[in-house]
């Protein structure tokens, strides 16, 4: 996959040629269906996780996805990243169907996914080798993104010398350095304390303003979803469908404290509570 990445993705099959001429739509999901095989003793049955999910994302949009836990939010991101299969429908990136893993769509995980044997600089530069970049340029590019997340004085530190929030900033820098078309974020601040999370929520908005990256951000925190997203997509309980979509047209940087957001937060929280009521009392152990 390391070859030159031209305008056309090398790892995709064109199916809707011409789509890009009409809009600057970058991601289209069409009737996406996903089933997990569930092992029940010696029986096997299929569990429907995602049921006809369809939505579009425009270039440069910041979309947050929220839903009750276990609804398949992470599965949805994994599918878009090409890390999980799906049973029906299409995932189309820039008019091409996603077929394999590619560095065009980069995921930032909730867990610590940084390599402990590399320094911050080496971690951020890691994926650039596969883009055929010469060493000096890799270093320069990595440094640029380390500066963007304001960790230049830690460029030569190892991971255990950083706090949780700093690690997630390194992960963000590593993702951005790949210069992906879409940045997927799977509850990236979920494991952080409240104060650090607030700081990073501010920073990710600034980064989005500066880089104009398309970001798909999964969270279970309503306040986070509302303060970050241009659009919030609310998923229902499993089998997940899109329950509601909310467009938020407020100037950035925003915070959840903004009084204009209170109504929306309450509304989404009410909707979520309704979904939790549907949830079976003893879940099936499929993680979100």
């Amino acid at each position: 996959m390391g070859e030159e990445l031209t305008e056309e993705r090398s790892n995709t099959i064109p199916i809707f040629p011409g789509t890009r001429l009409i809009t600057n739509r970058i991601l289209e999901l069409r009737d996406l269906r996903k089933t997990h095989v569930r092992h029940n003793g010696n029986q096997k049955d299929d569990l429907l996780v995602l049921d006809d999910i369809s939505f579009d994302v425009d270039e440069g949009e910041f979309v947050t996805i929220i839903g009750p836990s276990g609804c398949g939010k992470s599965t949805l991101l994994n599918i878009i990243a090409g890390m999980e299969s799906y049973q029906g429908g299409d995932v189309v990136v820039s008019g091409h169907r996603v077929s394999t893993l590619g560095p065009d769509i980069v995921m930032i995980f909730q867990e610590d996914s940084l390599f402990p044997w590399l320094t911050v600089l080496e971690n951020v530069a890691f994926g650039l080798r596969n883009k055929g970049m010469p060493k000096e340029e890799r270093k320069k590019t990595a440094m640029k993104y380390i500066e963007l997340v304001q960790l230049e004085q830690f460029a030569h530190s190892y991971m255990h010398q950083l706090s949780g929030g700093m690690k997630q900033r390194v992960a963000i820098a590593r993702g951005l350095a790949m210069n992906p078309r879409i940045l997927l974020m799977d509850e990236p601040f979920g494991a952080l304390d409240y104060r650090t999370r607030e700081i990073l929520q501010g920073q990710i908005q600034e980064i989005h303003e500066k880089t104009k990256k398309t970001i798909l951000f999964v969270t279970h925190d309503v306040r986070e979803a509302v303060s970050l997203g241009d659009r919030v997509i609310l998923l229902s309980h499993r089998p997940s469908k899109i329950k509601r979509e909310y467009a938020i047209d407020l100037p950035r940087p925003r915070s959840a404290e903004d009084p204009q957001l209170h109504g929306l937060i309450n509304e989404i929280q009410r909707q979520l509570k309704e979904e939790v009521k549907f949830a079976e009392p003893n879940g099936t152990g499929i993680s979100a």
Partner: peptide, 21 residues
């Protein structure tokens, strides 16, 4: 598994994945 997952996500595979991750 997260290391391998993250590396694959960055386009790593085959011998290079083995050697570098």
């Amino acid at each position: 598994p997260i290391y391998v997952k993250a590396a694959r996500n960055m386009g790593e595979g085959g011998v290079s994945l083995f050697k570098n991750v």
